[in-house]
Design a protein around this nucleic acid. Structure first.
Lengths: 236, 236
DNA sequence: CGTCCTTTTGAACATTGTCAAACACTGTGG
DNA sequence: CCACAGTGTTTGACAATGTTCAAAAGGACG
């Protein structure tokens, strides 16, 4: 079915922070039961509530993590290559709290959860890496909660644009890489409200047409958005 | 200043999930640099943005974790004995994302962060425990985010009451152990709105007078609240 | 060109927040 | 014991924010 092990096909997995420092033998052990699969867009990879059988690693494409309750749905996060998701459920051997679906054609490595737990116990460096990764995830969610609870939707949009701009090396002009409907959900608002928010931000020099965003006066936008490293910096 | 080491005074620390399985020598190492302090109510123990010098363990009393931005403030969580807080910042050696203040007179053990990191690297069981704890924290925050994004404030209040009722062994009548003003903040709403929410829930048989809550018809309340283990169960 | 889907727009509506005032509770000091 | 201050809670009127619904406009694609 597949040519060689995932590690042979995707050396970048080995380079992932999570695996970079671990011993070769242990990495091989992890990859022995792992397999790589290619999925078309809009495929639901996992459903919340399911038992966590595999740690997932996005090698290419992108994945939407979302949750539902009472006929409502919300996007929780987007996973880009190369990174993992549902690590916490794997560690705790508990049901997934979020569902995941491919946003585009994506290649994903699946590592049996029990292998992850087993290698964790025998490889201190892997253990260290897992803790660092988990702490990172935890802090990201905390920042997201602060964003949601302390800011209005307009402020969230403004700060989102500044973060995206930073990601685009600070360029005045850049692209939204997320469908607006989904972006609205990520930011905790409706598509209609997001559309109006973009329009409101015109008074701070922001221009959004299609996926193109232009930040006319960054200082002006920042005066309104008041970005904070303790909310908006996703690197620490 | 203090009689004996913290572990002698508070054997329950040793019993904490985080420390229970680790080797004696390593536990002693951790406690060597640790110290126990008693704080009066309303003392700010740490401020967001500060470097994370100590892992904190609440031995008695309770602690409010909160965040501020642009003159606004929100309560993120409450820490009850015996548990730790700001573990993620300690692990990552990164600035605190939340501030902490005592809600009442509280005794707190402070363990130097570098000791936690050092012992992590030499004690696999401690490492395992830290990962489990972190994964637990992560999942709790995810559940909280789902609560915030998928439910209205009235639904959040209803589910909060059901969780508190479960905590009180399912009794029809129980006490709120949180000041309403702070509870409102935890639930992401204003005190006024919380007050009105309690009134609205009367139509589902809920009666709140002072700190006393009576759930007249649990099934009825559940029909409205639609509690879900993937949001409301804080044990998995 | 037509179809499907997303985005935008407008108007009505619902929810939530703000502000000011009244009320209730607690503890203090006369 | 009471008066009183201080704090937290509740209430009502109002404003701001966000959602819903319907419809129009724009894009992507066969």
């Amino acid at each position: 079915m597949h040519l060689g092990t995932p590690e042979q096909q995707f050396p970048e997995i080995r380079e992932l922070d999570l695996f970079a420092e671990m011993e070769d033998a242990h990495f091989k052990l992890l990859m022995r039961g792992a397999y790589l699969q290619t999925f078309p867009p809009q495929i639901e990879l996992i459903s919340e509530g399911d038992p966590s059988d595999f740690l997932h690693i996005v090698v290419s494409g992108s994945v939407d993590l979302f949750s539902t309750w009472n006929r409502r749905e919300t996007s929780m996060a987007t996973v880009w290559p190369v990174s993992t998701f549902i690590l916490a459920a794997t560690i705790k051997n508990a049901p997934y709290l979020m569902s995941a679906r491919t946003l585009e054609k994506s290649r994903i490595v699946l590592v049996p959860s029990q292998d992850v737990r087993a290698v964790f116990d025998i490889d201190a460096r892997f253990a260290r890496a897992i803790v660092t990764e988990l702490a990172q995830c935890y802090r990201s969610v905390i920042k997201n909660t602060k964003d949601l609870k302390l800011r209005t939707s307009l402020e969230r949009v403004a700060n989102y644009l500044l973060r995206q701009q930073a990601r685009a090396s600070g360029e005045r002009e850049f692209e939204l890489l997320t469908e607006k409907r989904r972006l609205a959900s990520v930011l905790g608002m409706t598509p209609e409200n997001l559309s109006r928010a973009f329009k409101s931000l015109q008074s701070y020099g922001v221009c959004v047409t299609g996926n193109r965003v232009t930040v006319g006066d960054q200082a002006d936008l920042e005066r309104f958005a008041k970005p904070s490293p303790l909310i908006d910096d996703y690197t620490t």
